[in-house]
Design a protein around this nucleic acid. Structure first.
Lengths: 199, 199
DNA sequence: AGTTATTTGGCACAGTCATGCTACAAAGGG
DNA sequence: CCCTTTGTAGCATGACTGTGCCAAATAACT
Protein backbone atom coordinates (compact mmCIF):
# COMPACT_ATOMS: atom_id res chain seq x y z
CA UNK A 1 0.00 0.00 0.00
CA UNK A 2 1.13 3.60 -0.32
CA UNK A 3 2.29 5.92 2.39
CA UNK A 4 -0.24 4.51 4.88
CA UNK A 5 -1.91 7.73 5.93
CA UNK A 6 -3.66 8.53 9.19
CA UNK A 7 -7.16 8.73 7.76
CA UNK A 8 -8.65 10.74 10.61
CA UNK A 9 -5.90 13.31 10.50
CA UNK A 10 -6.38 13.58 6.76
CA UNK A 11 -10.08 14.18 7.17
CA UNK A 12 -9.41 16.92 9.67
CA UNK A 13 -6.88 18.51 7.35
CA UNK A 14 -9.44 18.53 4.56
CA UNK A 15 -11.97 20.05 6.97
CA UNK A 16 -9.51 22.87 7.60
CA UNK A 17 -9.29 23.41 3.87
CA UNK A 18 -13.08 23.69 3.87
CA UNK A 19 -12.80 26.37 6.54
CA UNK A 20 -10.29 28.33 4.52
CA UNK A 21 -12.43 28.26 1.39
CA UNK A 22 -15.59 29.19 3.30
CA UNK A 23 -13.76 31.94 5.07
CA UNK A 24 -12.42 33.48 1.89
CA UNK A 25 -15.16 32.78 -0.64
CA UNK A 26 -18.26 31.57 1.17
CA UNK A 27 -19.80 28.15 1.60
CA UNK A 28 -21.22 28.39 -1.90
CA UNK A 29 -17.69 28.05 -3.27
CA UNK A 30 -16.76 25.08 -1.11
CA UNK A 31 -16.93 22.66 -4.01
CA UNK A 32 -14.90 19.47 -4.08
CA UNK A 33 -12.57 21.08 -6.58
CA UNK A 34 -11.93 24.25 -4.60
CA UNK A 35 -11.52 22.37 -1.34
CA UNK A 36 -9.14 19.87 -2.91
CA UNK A 37 -7.06 22.71 -4.30
CA UNK A 38 -6.99 24.46 -0.92
CA UNK A 39 -5.93 21.19 0.71
CA UNK A 40 -3.29 20.70 -1.98
CA UNK A 41 -4.79 17.35 -2.96
CA UNK A 42 -6.22 15.89 -6.11
CA UNK A 43 -9.98 15.89 -6.25
CA UNK A 44 -9.97 12.09 -6.40
CA UNK A 45 -8.01 11.96 -3.17
CA UNK A 46 -10.55 14.02 -1.30
CA UNK A 47 -13.25 11.72 -2.56
CA UNK A 48 -11.37 8.79 -1.13
CA UNK A 49 -11.88 10.12 2.38
CA UNK A 50 -15.41 11.43 1.94
CA UNK A 51 -18.10 9.50 0.13
CA UNK A 52 -20.15 12.60 -0.51
CA UNK A 53 -20.01 16.32 -0.80
CA UNK A 54 -22.64 16.39 1.93
CA UNK A 55 -20.54 14.16 4.14
CA UNK A 56 -17.58 16.48 3.69
CA UNK A 57 -19.62 19.47 4.83
CA UNK A 58 -21.28 17.72 7.77
CA UNK A 59 -17.91 16.44 8.92
CA UNK A 60 -16.46 19.94 8.73
CA UNK A 61 -19.36 21.34 10.73
CA UNK A 62 -19.04 18.62 13.38
CA UNK A 63 -15.33 19.36 13.54
CA UNK A 64 -16.04 23.06 14.06
CA UNK A 65 -18.47 22.34 16.88
CA UNK A 66 -16.05 19.94 18.55
CA UNK A 67 -13.43 22.64 18.51
CA UNK A 68 -15.73 25.18 20.16
CA UNK A 69 -16.84 22.65 22.76
CA UNK A 70 -13.25 21.84 23.63
CA UNK A 71 -12.53 25.51 24.29
CA UNK A 72 -15.69 25.96 26.34
CA UNK A 73 -14.99 22.98 28.60
CA UNK A 74 -11.87 24.55 30.02
CA UNK A 75 -13.70 27.82 30.71
CA UNK A 76 -16.63 26.10 32.41
CA UNK A 77 -14.26 24.53 34.90
CA UNK A 78 -12.78 27.95 35.60
CA UNK A 79 -16.22 29.24 36.53
CA UNK A 80 -16.80 26.41 38.98
CA UNK A 81 -13.34 26.87 40.46
CA UNK A 82 -13.89 30.58 41.11
CA UNK A 83 -15.26 31.19 44.59
CA UNK A 84 -14.71 34.90 45.10
CA UNK A 85 -17.35 37.09 43.48
CA UNK A 86 -14.83 39.06 41.46
CA UNK A 87 -13.19 35.88 40.22
CA UNK A 88 -16.52 34.41 39.22
CA UNK A 89 -17.49 37.49 37.29
CA UNK A 90 -14.20 37.42 35.39
CA UNK A 91 -14.56 33.70 34.71
CA UNK A 92 -18.10 34.18 33.38
CA UNK A 93 -16.90 36.99 31.16
CA UNK A 94 -14.15 34.76 29.79
CA UNK A 95 -16.57 31.89 29.26
CA UNK A 96 -19.07 33.98 27.32
CA UNK A 97 -16.26 35.73 25.50
CA UNK A 98 -15.30 32.34 24.14
CA UNK A 99 -18.49 32.55 22.08
CA UNK A 100 -17.48 35.86 20.54
CA UNK A 101 -15.01 36.44 17.69
CA UNK A 102 -12.53 38.31 19.88
CA UNK A 103 -9.36 37.20 18.11
CA UNK A 104 -8.58 36.35 14.45
CA UNK A 105 -8.94 32.59 14.99
CA UNK A 106 -12.32 32.87 16.61
CA UNK A 107 -13.33 35.44 14.02
CA UNK A 108 -12.71 32.90 11.29
CA UNK A 109 -14.62 30.35 13.32
CA UNK A 110 -17.57 32.70 13.63
CA UNK A 111 -17.56 33.38 9.91
CA UNK A 112 -17.69 29.67 9.17
CA UNK A 113 -20.35 29.15 11.83
CA UNK A 114 -22.62 31.78 10.28
CA UNK A 115 -22.18 30.35 6.79
CA UNK A 116 -22.99 26.83 7.94
CA UNK A 117 -25.83 27.63 10.28
CA UNK A 118 -27.43 29.80 7.65
CA UNK A 119 -27.01 27.11 5.02
CA UNK A 120 -28.59 24.64 7.46
CA UNK A 121 -31.87 26.46 6.98
CA UNK A 122 -32.19 25.02 3.50
CA UNK A 123 -29.84 22.00 3.72
CA UNK A 124 -31.33 19.28 5.91
CA UNK A 125 -28.00 17.48 6.29
CA UNK A 126 -26.57 20.39 8.27
CA UNK A 127 -29.62 21.09 10.41
CA UNK A 128 -28.99 18.69 13.33
CA UNK A 129 -25.52 20.02 14.06
CA UNK A 130 -26.64 23.63 13.78
CA UNK A 131 -29.45 22.88 16.19
CA UNK A 132 -27.09 21.26 18.68
CA UNK A 133 -24.91 24.36 18.72
CA UNK A 134 -27.91 26.66 19.15
CA UNK A 135 -29.17 24.70 22.13
CA UNK A 136 -25.71 24.37 23.63
CA UNK A 137 -25.39 28.15 23.78
CA UNK A 138 -28.76 28.35 25.55
CA UNK A 139 -27.66 25.75 28.06
CA UNK A 140 -24.58 27.79 28.90
CA UNK A 141 -26.61 30.98 29.17
CA UNK A 142 -29.03 29.30 31.57
CA UNK A 143 -26.23 27.95 33.72
CA UNK A 144 -24.55 31.34 33.95
CA UNK A 145 -27.84 32.94 35.00
CA UNK A 146 -28.59 30.55 37.85
CA UNK A 147 -28.74 33.49 40.26
CA UNK A 148 -31.76 35.21 38.72
CA UNK A 149 -35.29 34.32 39.71
CA UNK A 150 -36.73 31.14 38.27
CA UNK A 151 -39.50 33.08 36.58
CA UNK A 152 -37.06 35.20 34.64
CA UNK A 153 -34.30 32.75 33.82
CA UNK A 154 -35.87 31.58 30.55
CA UNK A 155 -36.29 35.10 29.18
CA UNK A 156 -32.90 36.24 30.48
CA UNK A 157 -31.14 33.23 28.98
CA UNK A 158 -32.72 33.92 25.63
CA UNK A 159 -31.78 37.58 25.90
CA UNK A 160 -28.17 36.76 26.70
CA UNK A 161 -27.95 34.14 23.96
CA UNK A 162 -29.49 36.48 21.39
CA UNK A 163 -27.06 39.21 22.40
CA UNK A 164 -24.10 36.86 21.94
CA UNK A 165 -25.42 35.66 18.58
CA UNK A 166 -26.08 39.21 17.48
CA UNK A 167 -22.62 40.43 18.46
CA UNK A 168 -21.03 37.52 16.64
CA UNK A 169 -23.09 38.09 13.50
CA UNK A 170 -22.44 41.81 13.51
CA UNK A 171 -18.71 41.28 14.00
CA UNK A 172 -18.65 38.82 11.13
CA UNK A 173 -20.55 41.09 8.77
CA UNK A 174 -19.13 44.47 9.76
CA UNK A 175 -15.76 43.66 11.33
CA UNK A 176 -14.46 47.20 11.04
CA UNK A 177 -17.35 48.56 13.12
CA UNK A 178 -17.86 45.76 15.63
CA UNK A 179 -14.36 45.36 16.99
CA UNK A 180 -13.31 43.17 19.94
CA UNK A 181 -13.32 46.27 22.15
CA UNK A 182 -16.93 47.02 21.27
CA UNK A 183 -17.97 43.43 21.92
CA UNK A 184 -16.24 43.36 25.28
CA UNK A 185 -17.82 46.65 26.31
CA UNK A 186 -21.30 45.47 25.31
CA UNK A 187 -20.94 42.12 27.07
CA UNK A 188 -19.57 43.78 30.18
CA UNK A 189 -22.41 46.28 30.23
CA UNK A 190 -24.95 43.50 29.85
CA UNK A 191 -23.53 41.55 32.78
CA UNK A 192 -23.43 44.73 34.87
CA UNK A 193 -27.13 45.31 34.42
CA UNK A 194 -28.22 41.78 35.34
CA UNK A 195 -30.04 41.58 38.71
CA UNK A 196 -27.47 40.09 41.04
CA UNK A 197 -26.77 36.94 39.16
CA UNK A 198 -23.22 37.07 38.04
CA UNK A 199 -21.68 39.45 40.54
CA UNK B 1 -44.63 47.34 -29.82
CA UNK B 2 -46.02 44.72 -27.53
CA UNK B 3 -48.13 45.13 -24.46
CA UNK B 4 -46.17 48.21 -23.33
CA UNK B 5 -45.27 47.10 -19.85
CA UNK B 6 -44.61 49.26 -16.80
CA UNK B 7 -40.92 48.49 -16.55
CA UNK B 8 -40.56 49.49 -12.91
CA UNK B 9 -43.49 47.39 -11.81
CA UNK B 10 -42.05 44.46 -13.73
CA UNK B 11 -38.71 44.85 -12.03
CA UNK B 12 -40.39 44.85 -8.66
CA UNK B 13 -42.40 41.76 -9.57
CA UNK B 14 -39.20 39.98 -10.54
CA UNK B 15 -37.64 41.09 -7.25
CA UNK B 16 -40.53 39.43 -5.45
CA UNK B 17 -39.79 36.26 -7.35
CA UNK B 18 -36.21 36.54 -6.10
CA UNK B 19 -37.55 36.77 -2.55
CA UNK B 20 -39.66 33.66 -3.00
CA UNK B 21 -36.76 31.63 -4.35
CA UNK B 22 -34.37 32.85 -1.65
CA UNK B 23 -36.96 32.17 1.01
CA UNK B 24 -37.56 28.61 -0.13
CA UNK B 25 -34.18 27.50 -1.44
CA UNK B 26 -31.56 30.02 -0.40
CA UNK B 27 -29.76 32.78 -2.28
CA UNK B 28 -27.50 30.17 -3.84
CA UNK B 29 -30.44 28.92 -5.88
CA UNK B 30 -31.54 32.36 -7.05
CA UNK B 31 -30.28 31.77 -10.59
CA UNK B 32 -31.78 33.54 -13.55
CA UNK B 33 -33.56 30.36 -14.53
CA UNK B 34 -35.08 29.69 -11.12
CA UNK B 35 -36.12 33.31 -10.67
CA UNK B 36 -37.63 33.46 -14.13
CA UNK B 37 -39.63 30.33 -13.41
CA UNK B 38 -40.83 31.71 -10.08
CA UNK B 39 -41.86 34.92 -11.83
CA UNK B 40 -43.57 32.91 -14.56
CA UNK B 41 -41.46 34.56 -17.22
CA UNK B 42 -39.05 33.31 -19.82
CA UNK B 43 -35.41 33.67 -18.89
CA UNK B 44 -34.90 36.03 -21.80
CA UNK B 45 -37.62 38.30 -20.47
CA UNK B 46 -35.96 38.65 -17.10
CA UNK B 47 -32.75 39.52 -18.84
CA UNK B 48 -34.52 42.29 -20.71
CA UNK B 49 -35.19 44.13 -17.46
CA UNK B 50 -31.87 43.38 -15.77
CA UNK B 51 -28.56 43.64 -17.59
CA UNK B 52 -26.84 41.39 -15.10
CA UNK B 53 -27.37 38.73 -12.51
CA UNK B 54 -25.62 41.05 -10.10
CA UNK B 55 -27.94 43.90 -10.99
CA UNK B 56 -30.93 41.67 -10.35
CA UNK B 57 -29.68 40.85 -6.86
CA UNK B 58 -28.67 44.38 -5.94
CA UNK B 59 -32.03 45.66 -7.13
CA UNK B 60 -33.82 43.05 -5.02
CA UNK B 61 -31.78 44.01 -1.97
CA UNK B 62 -32.46 47.71 -2.49
CA UNK B 63 -36.13 46.89 -2.85
CA UNK B 64 -36.08 44.96 0.43
CA UNK B 65 -34.44 47.84 2.25
CA UNK B 66 -36.89 50.35 0.80
CA UNK B 67 -39.74 48.22 2.08
CA UNK B 68 -38.31 48.11 5.60
CA UNK B 69 -37.64 51.84 5.58
CA UNK B 70 -41.19 52.55 4.52
CA UNK B 71 -42.51 50.57 7.47
CA UNK B 72 -40.13 52.23 9.90
CA UNK B 73 -41.04 55.76 8.84
CA UNK B 74 -44.60 55.39 10.02
CA UNK B 75 -43.48 54.06 13.38
CA UNK B 76 -40.94 56.81 13.93
CA UNK B 77 -43.68 59.37 13.59
CA UNK B 78 -45.71 57.50 16.18
CA UNK B 79 -42.85 57.80 18.66
CA UNK B 80 -42.61 61.54 18.16
CA UNK B 81 -46.37 61.91 18.44
CA UNK B 82 -46.49 60.08 21.77
CA UNK B 83 -46.20 62.47 24.68
CA UNK B 84 -47.34 60.38 27.63
CA UNK B 85 -44.65 58.06 29.02
CA UNK B 86 -46.77 54.95 28.58
CA UNK B 87 -47.59 55.89 25.00
CA UNK B 88 -43.96 56.52 24.21
CA UNK B 89 -42.90 53.16 25.63
CA UNK B 90 -45.50 51.38 23.52
CA UNK B 91 -44.51 53.34 20.43
CA UNK B 92 -40.83 52.46 20.96
CA UNK B 93 -41.72 48.83 21.38
CA UNK B 94 -43.69 48.90 18.15
CA UNK B 95 -40.87 50.68 16.34
CA UNK B 96 -38.22 48.18 17.41
CA UNK B 97 -40.62 45.31 16.86
CA UNK B 98 -40.73 46.38 13.24
CA UNK B 99 -37.15 45.12 13.03
CA UNK B 100 -38.14 41.67 14.31
CA UNK B 101 -39.78 38.85 12.34
CA UNK B 102 -42.97 38.95 14.39
CA UNK B 103 -45.36 37.94 11.62
CA UNK B 104 -45.01 35.67 8.57
CA UNK B 105 -44.33 38.56 6.19
CA UNK B 106 -41.60 40.03 8.30
CA UNK B 107 -40.25 36.54 8.93
CA UNK B 108 -39.75 36.06 5.20
CA UNK B 109 -38.18 39.49 5.04
CA UNK B 110 -35.74 38.56 7.79
CA UNK B 111 -34.84 35.33 6.05
CA UNK B 112 -34.03 37.19 2.87
CA UNK B 113 -32.15 39.86 4.81
CA UNK B 114 -29.90 37.28 6.45
CA UNK B 115 -29.20 35.56 3.15
CA UNK B 116 -28.29 38.80 1.44
CA UNK B 117 -26.32 40.40 4.24
CA UNK B 118 -24.33 37.22 4.71
CA UNK B 119 -23.68 36.95 0.99
CA UNK B 120 -22.54 40.58 1.04
CA UNK B 121 -19.50 39.46 3.03
CA UNK B 122 -18.07 37.83 -0.07
CA UNK B 123 -19.99 39.66 -2.83
CA UNK B 124 -18.80 43.25 -3.17
CA UNK B 125 -21.85 44.28 -5.18
CA UNK B 126 -24.13 43.70 -2.20
CA UNK B 127 -21.90 45.23 0.46
CA UNK B 128 -22.98 48.90 0.25
CA UNK B 129 -26.67 48.14 0.74
CA UNK B 130 -25.98 45.72 3.59
CA UNK B 131 -23.87 48.37 5.23
CA UNK B 132 -26.58 51.00 4.90
CA UNK B 133 -29.07 48.74 6.64
CA UNK B 134 -26.63 47.94 9.42
CA UNK B 135 -26.00 51.61 10.09
CA UNK B 136 -29.66 52.50 9.81
CA UNK B 137 -30.49 50.13 12.65
CA UNK B 138 -27.78 51.75 14.79
CA UNK B 139 -29.18 55.17 14.05
CA UNK B 140 -32.60 54.08 15.24
CA UNK B 141 -31.17 52.49 18.35
CA UNK B 142 -29.29 55.66 19.20
CA UNK B 143 -32.36 57.79 18.72
CA UNK B 144 -34.46 55.56 20.95
CA UNK B 145 -31.83 55.72 23.67
CA UNK B 146 -31.59 59.52 23.81
CA UNK B 147 -32.47 59.42 27.50
CA UNK B 148 -29.40 57.54 28.69
CA UNK B 149 -26.19 59.33 29.58
CA UNK B 150 -24.01 60.49 26.72
CA UNK B 151 -21.16 58.31 27.93
CA UNK B 152 -23.22 55.17 27.68
CA UNK B 153 -25.31 55.79 24.60
CA UNK B 154 -22.78 54.31 22.18
CA UNK B 155 -22.46 51.05 24.09
CA UNK B 156 -26.18 50.84 24.79
CA UNK B 157 -27.06 51.45 21.16
CA UNK B 158 -24.72 48.71 20.08
CA UNK B 159 -26.17 46.41 22.73
CA UNK B 160 -29.74 47.07 21.61
CA UNK B 161 -28.86 46.69 17.93
CA UNK B 162 -27.00 43.44 18.56
CA UNK B 163 -29.93 42.12 20.54
CA UNK B 164 -32.32 42.91 17.71
CA UNK B 165 -30.00 41.35 15.14
CA UNK B 166 -29.52 38.29 17.32
CA UNK B 167 -33.23 37.79 17.87
CA UNK B 168 -33.89 38.11 14.15
CA UNK B 169 -31.14 35.66 13.25
CA UNK B 170 -32.24 33.16 15.87
CA UNK B 171 -35.85 33.39 14.76
CA UNK B 172 -34.83 32.84 11.16
CA UNK B 173 -32.64 29.83 11.94
CA UNK B 174 -34.74 28.19 14.71
CA UNK B 175 -38.24 29.46 14.13
CA UNK B 176 -39.86 26.76 16.26
CA UNK B 177 -37.84 27.83 19.31
CA UNK B 178 -37.68 31.61 18.86
CA UNK B 179 -41.35 32.44 18.43
CA UNK B 180 -42.86 35.93 18.28
CA UNK B 181 -43.86 35.58 21.93
CA UNK B 182 -40.28 34.89 22.95
CA UNK B 183 -39.01 37.83 20.94
CA UNK B 184 -41.57 40.18 22.44
CA UNK B 185 -40.75 39.02 25.96
CA UNK B 186 -37.01 39.48 25.41
CA UNK B 187 -37.40 42.94 23.88
CA UNK B 188 -39.78 44.00 26.64
CA UNK B 189 -37.40 42.79 29.29
CA UNK B 190 -34.53 44.63 27.68
CA UNK B 191 -36.42 47.91 27.59
CA UNK B 192 -37.49 47.40 31.21
CA UNK B 193 -33.90 47.16 32.40
CA UNK B 194 -32.68 50.26 30.59
CA UNK B 195 -31.82 53.15 32.94
CA UNK B 196 -34.72 55.56 32.53
CA UNK B 197 -34.46 56.08 28.84
CA UNK B 198 -37.61 54.73 27.34
CA UNK B 199 -40.08 54.86 30.21
C1' DA C 1 -50.87 50.50 -43.91
C1' DG C 2 -46.33 50.66 -43.09
C1' DT C 3 -42.59 51.63 -39.95
C1' DT C 4 -40.37 51.32 -35.76
C1' DA C 5 -39.35 50.50 -31.10
C1' DT C 6 -40.26 47.30 -27.38
C1' DT C 7 -40.92 42.91 -25.56
C1' DT C 8 -40.40 38.12 -25.59
C1' DG C 9 -38.27 33.72 -26.39
C1' DG C 10 -34.55 30.85 -27.22
C1' DC C 11 -30.16 28.99 -29.13
C1' DA C 12 -25.15 28.41 -28.39
C1' DC C 13 -21.16 28.53 -25.74
C1' DA C 14 -17.80 28.08 -22.23
C1' DG C 15 -17.53 27.29 -17.65
C1' DT C 16 -18.58 24.80 -13.31
C1' DC C 17 -20.56 21.14 -10.58
C1' DA C 18 -21.00 16.09 -8.20
C1' DT C 19 -20.44 11.61 -9.02
C1' DG C 20 -19.79 6.68 -11.20
C1' DC C 21 -16.16 4.29 -12.84
C1' DT C 22 -11.66 2.76 -14.11
C1' DA C 23 -6.61 2.57 -13.87
C1' DC C 24 -2.42 2.71 -11.73
C1' DA C 25 1.19 3.47 -8.15
C1' DA C 26 2.94 2.24 -3.80
C1' DA C 27 4.03 -0.48 0.32
C1' DG C 28 3.02 -3.86 3.64
C1' DG C 29 2.46 -9.05 4.67
C1' DG C 30 2.96 -13.88 3.05
C1' DC D 1 8.93 -12.32 -4.96
C1' DC D 2 4.24 -11.83 -5.26
C1' DC D 3 0.00 -10.34 -4.05
C1' DT D 4 -3.25 -7.68 -1.84
C1' DT D 5 -4.70 -3.58 0.14
C1' DT D 6 -4.68 1.47 0.26
C1' DG D 7 -4.04 5.73 -1.73
C1' DT D 8 -3.98 8.75 -5.82
C1' DA D 9 -5.43 10.31 -10.18
C1' DG D 10 -8.33 11.17 -13.92
C1' DC D 11 -11.85 10.38 -17.54
C1' DA D 12 -16.83 10.55 -18.87
C1' DT D 13 -21.41 11.95 -18.08
C1' DG D 14 -25.38 14.68 -17.33
C1' DA D 15 -26.84 18.73 -15.18
C1' DC D 16 -26.53 23.46 -14.14
C1' DT D 17 -24.71 28.32 -14.54
C1' DG D 18 -24.41 33.45 -16.81
C1' DT D 19 -24.11 35.68 -20.90
C1' DG D 20 -23.56 37.00 -26.10
C1' DC D 21 -26.34 36.90 -29.80
C1' DC D 22 -30.31 36.52 -32.76
C1' DA D 23 -35.13 36.13 -34.36
C1' DA D 24 -39.80 36.67 -33.95
C1' DA D 25 -44.03 38.69 -32.29
C1' DT D 26 -46.48 42.65 -30.91
C1' DA D 27 -48.67 47.31 -30.79
C1' DA D 28 -48.09 52.19 -30.89
C1' DC D 29 -47.06 56.07 -34.01
C1' DT D 30 -46.51 58.37 -38.53
Amino acid sequence: MPKLVDADARRRAVAEAVFRVVRAQGLEQASLRNVAEAADLAIGSVRHYFTNHDELLTFALDELIARVERRLMARVNQVYAATAAADRRAAVEDLLGELLPLDPDRHDEAVVWLEFTNAARTRPALAPAARRLHEGIRAIARRVLEGVGAAEVAVEAERLAALLDGLAVDAVLQPDLITPDVMRAVLGRHLDTLPRAVH
